[in-house]
Simulated scan of single mutants.
Amino acid sequence: MKADITEEDTIQASETLRTNFQQHASFLGQLEEARNAEKMKIYNKLSYVYIPDVYWDFTTTRVLTMEYVDGVPLYDQNRLIDADFDRKQLAQRLATAIFSQILENGFFHADPHPGNVMALPDSRVAFLDWSESCRII
Rank of each mutant, 00 (worst) to 15 (best):
K2T: 04
I5T: 14
I5V: 15
T6S: 13
E7D: 11
E8T: 11
D9M: 13
T10L: 15
I11W: 12
Q12P: 00
L17P: 02
R18D: 00
R18Q: 08
L28C: 11
Q30K: 14
L31D: 03
R35N: 14
K39F: 11
M40D: 03
M40N: 08
I42H: 14
Y43S: 03
Y43T: 02
K45W: 06
Y50C: 01
D53C: 02
V54I: 15
V54G: 02
V54Y: 01
F58V: 08
T59F: 05
T59H: 04
T60P: 06
T61A: 12
M66G: 00
Y68T: 06
Y68E: 10
V69D: 02
G71I: 07
G71C: 05
V72H: 03
P73M: 12
L74E: 02
Y75M: 13
Q77L: 11
N78F: 09
L80N: 03
D84V: 07
R87A: 07
A91P: 11
Q92W: 12
R93G: 09
R93H: 14
T96N: 11
A97E: 04
A97Y: 02
S100T: 13
I102G: 00
I102E: 02
I102Q: 03
G106N: 06
D111C: 05
P112N: 12
P112C: 09
H113P: 01
P114Y: 07
P114Q: 03
G115H: 01
G115V: 02
N116S: 08
L120K: 04
L120I: 05
P121I: 14
P121M: 11
S123D: 15
V125E: 00
L128F: 05
E132G: 00
E132R: 06
C134W: 08
R135F: 14
I136W: 07
